[in-house]
């Protein structure tokens, strides 16, 4: 039974649960489930297919080559990283500009970052399913040597958890930033996503980049995350990828945990600041230009 206290002070859990359900409905109810499933799969599959054909054109059809396997795994999980970052940040724009409900959310007794995280759950779930299906596609059609028995599940789960914390925090930071942008805020998520993809070592080792740009990659959590995932899923093949070869799994986990703490703290601090400035400037119910 809902009490008066519940309505005045809904808990974070309740905010999360209801916003997750809302996010799911918004994400999926524009069409029937079949079209939604195709829509959710076709985009990440196309991204993977581009890399498969690029590899095929240059190296032929040897898909068990370590270079290909490491690229394939990195690309598959990049959808999850982008899904989390953009899912969290995009919700605030969608509510402000499309549904024009952000002002009502602001006067509701809820914590907006908690709402944003909940709102993104559907996007994250869809991204996770996409990753799994890309991996299944790789195993079935490209015969990549990936088996459930050989996966280091502990390392995989730790990497996924720490990565989620980092990307959620980055999404909250981005969401706060979009509150202040007057022109093209819809493009910000894509720009940041593309930039992070470039400096992440997802589809090529950071050593290919010019030295200055390489250090940008080292300063972000993504490269460490992809390295851990490769090692968890591919074992020695993952370790052969020329990124952080001098660091052990434990050291990489510690670095990623440090990033999780840092990005989490920064996200909370900066969101508070963005939020204050946005309120002062009257941006909460603003419609941006594009």
């Amino acid at each position: 039974m809902t009490t008066e206290t519940d309505l005045k002070h809904p808990t974070n859990t309740k905010t999360f649960r209801i916003s997750a359900w809302l996010g799911w409905l918004i994400q999926s109810n524009w069409t029937d489930p079949f079209v939604f499933a195709i829509y959710s799969l076709i985009v990440p599959m196309a991204g993977a297919a581009i890399l498969v054909v690029m590899y095929m054109v240059i190296r032929g059809g040897n898909f068990s080559d370590p270079d290909f396997l490491n690229i394939f795994i990195g690309n598959a999980f990049s959808h999850l990283a982008n899904g989390v970052i953009q899912g969290v940040s995009y919700g605030i724009l969608d509510d402000r500009e499309h549904y024009r409900t952000l002002k009502y959310l602001y006067i509701a007794p809820i914590r907006i970052p908690v709402y944003l995280i909940g709102r993104s759950v559907a996007t994250v779930l869809v991204s996770m399913i996409s990753v799994i299906l890309i991996l299944i596609f790789g195993v079935v059609f490209l015969h990549i040597p990936l088996s459930l028995a050989s996966v280091n599940w502990g390392l995989l789960l730790i990497a996924l958890l720490l990565g989620m914390i980092c990307f959620t925090a980055m999404g909250i930071f981005l969401g706060g930033w979009t509150l202040l942008i007057k022109n093209n805020p819809y493009d910000l998520g894509t720009v940041v996503g593309t930039g992070l993809f470039l400096f992440s070592g997802a589809i090529f080792p950071l050593s290919v980049l010019p030295t200055a740009l390489r250090y940008l990659g080292y300063a972000l959590p993504l490269a460490y995350w992809y390295t851990l995932l490769r090692r968890a899923l591919l074992g020695e093949i993952g370790r052969s990828f020329p990124m952080f070869t001098g660091l052990s799994d434990g050291q990489l986990v510690l670095i990623l945990a440090g990033f999780a703490l840092l990005t989490g703290g920064l996200a909370l601090l900066t969101y508070g600041w963005f939020d204050k400035v946005a309120r002062d400037r009257g941006n909460i119910d603003m419609i941006s230009n594009y």
């Binding site: 581009i50 890399l51 690029m54 590899y55 054109v57 240059i58 190296r59 270079d67 690229i71 593309t194 993809f197 470039l198 589809i203 090529f204 080792p205 290919v208 980049l209």
Partner: peptide, 11 residues
């Protein structure tokens, strides 16, 4: 991004 993929593959 895609230029560097080709560079990594020595295309």
């Amino acid at each position: 991004g895609y230029v560097y993929v080709y560079r990594a593959l020595n295309a």
